[in-house]
């Protein structure tokens, strides 16, 4: 973990209530896809944990959904603004467990961390497939970006307004894969666990106090004892999760 001041270089809306922010700063503490940063906002007491979407040298990309006052405030930040970030938080995905044909399954704001993961897996010579699920057409983002890296990308929308109609699990049932990585709302994660045919890794979300393991605010019980989502997670393996 590192505390660093980053400079916002870009901040724009890319889909309904979904924004992409790029920042420049010391990214050395970020060591694996699936980790997150915890950013401080003027006038907000707690930091906001946001997963790392992409990383290029000192350039960090975050995608966040505007859901409350804090993220609405983030949307107003202009290029040139400084942001105090704790970086390199969480365990991130374990790439070494992947087979040659991993499947990435993302739901809504759970899609962003899978982007850096897809790049890392592809760089390691894996043939990556992705299913990206959204509620509706206006919320879809990063289809093109994933398509440039993955051998197959399927978009699913719950209302059928774009791509395949239905949930990511409807698509997943039809696909072949050797391992899977997922991130998204908990009901989606649960549904994936019910139908998945291989081992895999799940990234969880929880309200956090500190984001670095000090307050025990985000603990969950696993088959191997209590774990802190922020420090021992957010990625847990299928084998250890108690649903």
């Amino acid at each position: 973990m590192k505390q660093t001041v980053f400079t916002v270089t870009e901040n724009r809306t890319i889909a309904r209530n979904t924004c992409l922010m790029t920042l420049r700063g010391d990214t050395a503490a970020i060591t694996s896809p699936g980790q997150f940063v915890n950013l401080r906002l003027e006038g907000r007491y707690l930091r906001r944990p946001i997963s790392v979407c992409d990383l290029n040298g000192d350039c960090l990309t975050l995608i966040y959904k505007v859901v409350g006052g804090g993220t609405a405030q983030m949307r107003e930040l202009k290029p040139g603004c400084s942001l105090d970030l704790l970086t390199g938080l969480g365990n991130g995905y374990d790439l070494s467990k992947s087979t040659d044909s991993p499947l990435l399954v993302g739901g809504g704001v759970g899609v962003p961390p899978l982007y850096l993961l897809s790049k890392s897996l592809a760089a390691a010579g894996r043939k990556v497939k992705a299913i990206l699920g959204f509620n509706t057409r206006d919320e879809v983002f990063f289809e093109e970006e994933f398509s440039q890296i993955c051998t197959e990308v399927v978009i699913a929308t719950a209302d059928g307004s774009y791509g395949k109609r239905g949930f990511v699990t409807d698509v997943m049932k039809e696909m072949t894969y050797g391992y899977f990585y997922t991130c998204g709302p908990e009901p989606m994660l649960k549904a994936i666990d019910k139908i998945a045919v291989t081992s895999g890794q799940f990234s969880f979300e929880e309200r956090m106090g500190c984001g670095f393991g000090a307050c025990m605010g985000c603990s969950c019980m696993t088959k191997y004892g209590s774990k802190r989502i922020c420090r021992d997670g957010p990625v847990l393996t299928r084998e250890e999760i108690i649903w």
Partner: peptide, 10 residues
């Protein structure tokens, strides 16, 4: 183990 989550509110 402590209380169920969420355990934190701003």
């Amino acid at each position: 183990f402590g209380n169920p989550t969420p355990r934190i509110a701003e």
